[in-house]
């Protein structure tokens, strides 16, 4: 149906055509042959963008913050402000497979700007705060010439550490009234923060949240050390724009730090290797599923349902069927 809109996608994306970019993102999101081939061809053009993750619990204001950051980057006092893309991930309903993607609701200020591209995506069953294809979609935006790619996670909370693997700089957004200091200490999410933002700083309790986070930082990073990044802690009110310049400053300072210490290159390497490994796992799993065959698979699942075998026995049983991987 859309043959004409899908021809020469790679060339058109590199030439800056927005419709082609939107189409290619769909292909990559759906993992189509067109998308895969395009990714291969675009790979040499990637590795330039600064990927900035934005994570935190629901309702902390991640989308509003992304909106403000995009706006602020576009108004930076440069002859040519950076082009900004936003990838906003929302959860897929495990019941219907559908999703309500509402992050654009908070990003109205930048919709008319040709230097900004916002794309919503559903998590499609992936856990960890991102969708399986978020990294690949960020690569497309990188190749398309967006210097800043803001990646907003689902926001389910403490287990959202996937973004740390993908992004160069991770912003963790907190807000008053979400939990006591124990929440802040136990949550693995704080350990991935390069920048901690206390959003809604005009609300009661914000000072408490701020103090708790500062205390936690003081405990984790008792002294300044060469080559060690101490997360910045910033108060903000995303709805009014308060604190946004400070966050931009922190993002850029973190980038300079990464480049200066060689961590940028190391993170890139770790990311590429991680991507390779997860692709390898997915490919092996898919190949294995093909070999096992649907019938045996379903049969095992129904035995499992009837509790005739345990989940681990089910795995062993299927693996034993497979000549490639024997116990």
């Amino acid at each position: 149906m859309r043959k004409s809109t899908d021809s020469d996608l790679v060339e058109r994306v590199l030439a800056g055509e927005r419709l082609a970019l939107a189409r290619l993102l769909t292909h990559v999101e759906n993992d189509t042959p067109v998308g895969r081939e395009a990714l291969e061809r675009l790979f040499p053009f990637t590795g330039r963008a600064h990927l900035v993750g934005i994570t935190g619990a629901p309702g902390t204001g991640k989308s509003s913050l992304a909106n403000r950051l995009a706006m602020a980057y576009r108004k930076l006092d440069h002859r040519e402000p950076p082009r900004v893309a936003v990838l906003a991930v929302d959860p897929t309903s495990p019941f219907s497979g559908g999703a309500l993607l509402g992050d654009r609701l908070r990003m109205k200020d930048v919709t008319g700007d040709p230097g900004v591209f916002i794309r919503s995506m559903a998590s499609r069953g992936a856990v960890g705060g991102l969708a399986r294809t978020t990294a690949a979609m960020a690569q497309v935006l990188d190749a398309a010439g967006f210097e800043k790619v803001l990646i907003e996670t689902v926001g389910a909370g403490q287990s959202e550490v996937e973004v740390a693997r993908l992004a160069h700089t991770v912003i963790v957004v907190d807000a008053p009234g979400l939990g006591d200091d124990i929440q802040a200490i136990k949550a693995g999410i704080l350990e991935i923060a390069d920048i901690l933002v206390v959003n809604k700083a005009d609300l009661p309790g914000a000072e408490n949240t701020f103090r708790n986070l500062r205390l936690m930082l003081d405990l984790t990073f008792p002294e300044e050390r060469e080559g060690l990044w101490r997360p910045s802690l910033v108060r903000a009110v995303a709805s009014t724009g308060e604190g946004i310049p400070e966050i931009i400053q922190a993002i850029e300072a973190h980038k300079d730090f990464l480049v200066k210490t060689g961590s940028w290159a190391k993170r890139e390497e770790a990311r590429l290797w991680g991507e390779f490994e997860s692709l390898l796992q997915a490919a092996l799993l898919a190949r294995w599923r093909d070999q096992v065959g649907e019938e045996a698979y379903q049969q095992t699942l129904s035995q499992l349902t009837r509790r005739q075998i345990s989940p681990w026995q089910a795995v062993k049983k299927l693996l034993e069927r497979d000549s490639m991987i024997s116990e």
Binding site: T92, S93, S96, G97, G98, A99, L101, R104, L105, A122
Partner: peptide, 12 residues
């Protein structure tokens, strides 16, 4: 539409 399995972008 979400419950019907679609991905719905809501812009408000």
């Amino acid at each position: 539409l979400r419950d019907a399995g679609m991905e719905v972008i809501y812009t408000g």
